[in-house]
Write a protein that binds this DNA or RNA. Structure first.
Lengths: 99, 99
DNA sequence: CATATACTTGGTCGTTTTGTCAAACATCAA
DNA sequence: TTGATGTTTGACAAAACGACCAAGTATATG
């Protein structure tokens, strides 16, 4: 594999990796419906607020979500809606295995 | 989040996580073309054969690929072709950022 | 049977990721 | 300004990951 091809593959993999955590994936799926502030996202994943914030920063570095400060709240929104399409396909596969 | 919902989210995340490594992703993309034996996959990722084998076992546990022993070779094939669709979407997003 | 080939598994070790706490920061309201 | 609220950041320990080597299993072949 050539060097620039490796870099591209790494960049792609980083996106998948960011989604490879149940809390982060749950937040991304929730953001598929609407933008949400950190406090609302925390209710979804039920973790320490600092943990939630760090997960969000992982998603943001990967370019999957973007943040928008409104007053003292920060709203996150989904930048890559096609993620949801893949989740649906994954769900179909999981359903075949009894999920 | 309820317990079974958490399990589902974990299973989904495991799929993403399995794809979150450049070697594994490269192999999955290659398998999108055709089934390949471990030896051919090794040529693609250029790692130790034992490393390749372990990566493949991660992909298999996640349900992304399946294996089929033919003689002394083991052929792997892609179980979730929709993965490639998401890769294309990721590539579009990466392209917008200069890749 | 003995050997070679194709692959998997176990062990080790350095690196990365996670979660938590405390502290910092930003914004609003009294 | 002071305090309350919402979020981020730094530090640190525990856990998971990734790569390599060695050893193990399975299958074909001489």
């Amino acid at each position: 594999m050539k060097k620039n091809e490796q870099k591209l593959m790494q960049a792609r993999a980083d996106m998948f990796k960011a989604l490879g955590h149940p809390a982060r994936l749950a937040m991304v799926i929730a953001l598929g419906e609407q933008s949400l502030c950190v406090c609302e996202l925390q209710k979804i994943v039920e973790s320490d607020i600092s943990t939630v914030s760090k997960h969000l920063s992982v998603l943001r570095s990967a370019g999957l979500v973007e943040s928008d400060k409104q007053g003292k709240q920060v709203f996150y929104s989904l930048r890559l809606p096609c993620t949801l399409g893949f989740v649906r396909c994954v769900d179909k596969a999981l359903a075949e295995r009894g999920y």
